[in-house]
Amino acid sequence: MSRYLSYIAPLLTFAILLILWEFLVILNKIPLYILPAPSDIISSLMLNYLDLFSSAFITLRITLLAFFIASSLAIFLAILFSQSRIVELSIYPIAVIFQVTPVVAIAPLILIWVGFDNAEYAILILATIVAFFPVLANANLGIKSVNKNLHELFSLYGAGRYQRLTKLQIPFALPFILTGMKTSIGLSLIGTVVAEFVAGSGTSTGLAWRIIEAGNRLDIAKLFAALILLVILGIFLFLLISYIEKLILRKWHDSSII
């Protein structure tokens, strides 16, 4: 019962909110350019589906690419940190600097360096910067969290660095890394959208560009339609990583055992 309730309750709440929204807009005769009714947004979505879906695909492609680059780089660095304290002390502060610097503030610089003709590369770099840190911080923590007794067990059998890394530290850090990735995938999408906003039209026509375009034309229904696609994209990406996490950890980690 409670399992079904966990699906039904939010869906029902969402449906009630949509109906309320629809009626409030109709009753108060709110103009389309201020707040469109949900039915108007759906109409706009159907009318503009080619534009919107091709833009969503561009945003999705950059998001996934940024996520992949950020995750790979972060895991590689975390492994490097585990092998050399000096490397960690040298590089980690730089990673923190990137983390705390607002992406909007460095976006113009990246755009200038990469060139306005290559706005997509700039967006990719910016999204990668945003998505990078959670994986690095979690992977670093995971590798360092290995139980002291497990390290001693490996020492007892004369395990080398490579054996320790591949048979102990990386598997142990997997749940941490996957948690970082779940945060990172969302940030990757946010980073892509923010970078698209900053890049303006350029050569990239992702969903953020559609939002700007619709806003400029006071086509608020289309703006909402693009927003809905963004939310759906975000949820889809989060569920995708959650599913991968479950596949990897399902047999042995408490978080994935139903």
């Binding site: 001693e152 490996f154 059998y157």
Partner: peptide
Amino acid sequence: FVFQDSTLLPWRNVIDNVLLPSELT
């Protein structure tokens, strides 16, 4: 060496845990 906690690797099944010393050596 047998530790206070069992120090099994949770991502390995029982036989693979027992095989660990052979793998490491």
